[in-house]
């Protein structure tokens, strides 16, 4: 309420009008019975006792929607009854982590860890929160994406630009960890995670990169390029298409040869190949 509204109540009840806002409020509460001014107070919507019970016992639905965790309402409903709302969501995160790991959808797996990190952070479970965050960072640094596909090294620039790093910085400081303790947590997170079929970096190099990033160093992908592993386009264990050099791929060579031989028109051939490349790129980057 504004000062003039408060003064109006005081005036109508023959009270002094001097003082600041807290003093006017105190005078109203002390000297005037509530029935005399309740009609003038602003009204709010408020959950009743029944409403509050609903909100508390079904908090998982609201949290799922607000934080965009992506669980289906039916999945939440299926776990209701035997679990608290917190246990219920935790079970769904664990299930998602197992599911995406088994399906080798490493982008979705990374996102599931990130969502788990947000969840634990909100519940002030900082050790769990930082462990989930480190697991998400681990999968970013492996270069593995959905459909068991390895991203091109040249498209990984975003890895050091995500919000994961500011989150890590904050939690590292909040938990007052030493770098050794942080690295032990990283080891534990990696040990507990699904093993990817390929990683651009070994765990030791990743640790160096994490500490370098936390100390504010930049351009880490270039600086550590000499330590990286190189994926193969012919591996039976994962899919890899080198989008930075598309015409190195067998499909590209084949199309170029056909174009040169006049077997297909350049317009349709180029379009088909470009669509193929763009589709693979989009699936790898945005399907999670």
């Amino acid at each position: 309420m504004t000062i003039s509204q408060l003064k109006e109540i005081l005036r109508d009840n023959q009270q002094k009008l001097t003082g600041n806002k807290p003093e006017l409020l105190k005078r109203i509460i002390k000297n005037i019975s509530a029935e005399k001014y309740s009609a003038r107070l602003p009204k709010i919507y408020k959950a009743t006792k029944n409403g509050r019970r609903e909100l508390e016992t079904r908090w998982a639905y609201i949290e799922n929607q607000r934080e965009m965790y992506g669980f289906l309402n039916s999945e939440i409903a299926a776990l209701e009854g035997t679990n608290t709302q917190e246990q219920l969501l935790e079970k769904l995160f664990v299930r998602d982590i197992i599911k995406h790991g088994a399906a080798r959808d490493f982008g979705l797996l990374r996102n599931a860890y990130f969502n788990a990190h947000k969840f634990f952070k909100k519940r002030r479970r900082l050790k769990d929160s930082i462990s989930a965050l480190l697991a998400a960072i681990y999968f970013d640094l492996t270069g593995m994406s959905n459909n068991n596909t390895v991203e091109s090294y040249s498209t990984m620039g975003y890895v050091f630009e995500t919000s994961l790093w500011s989150e890590l910085d904050k939690e590292f400081t909040a938990l007052n960890l030493s770098t050794t303790e942080l690295m032990l947590l990283f080891d534990d997170a990696v040990d507990a995670a699904t093993k990817p079929p390929f990683s651009y970096f070994g765990v030791g190099t990743m640790k160096e990169m994490i500490l370098a990033r936390l100390s504010g160093q930049q351009d880490l992908l270039n600086r550590y390029e000499k330590h990286r592993n190189t994926p193969s386009e012919n591996s039976p264990n994962y899919n890899y298409f080198d989008l930075s050099h598309p015409y190195n791929s067998a499909e590209g060579e084949e199309i170029i040869q056909k174009l040169a031989a006049g077997e297909i028109s350049s317009k349709s051939g180029c379009s088909a190949f470009l669509i193929f490349l763009v589709a693979i790129f989009l699936i790898n980057r945005y399907s999670f």
Binding site: S38, L41, P42, K43, I44, Y45, K46, A47, T48, N50, G51, E54
Partner: peptide
């Protein structure tokens, strides 16, 4: 929601 008793309007 108000009619079914889950929400009410009251003074702030």
């Amino acid at each position: 929601l108000i009619g079914t008793g889950y929400l009410e309007i009251c003074a702030a």
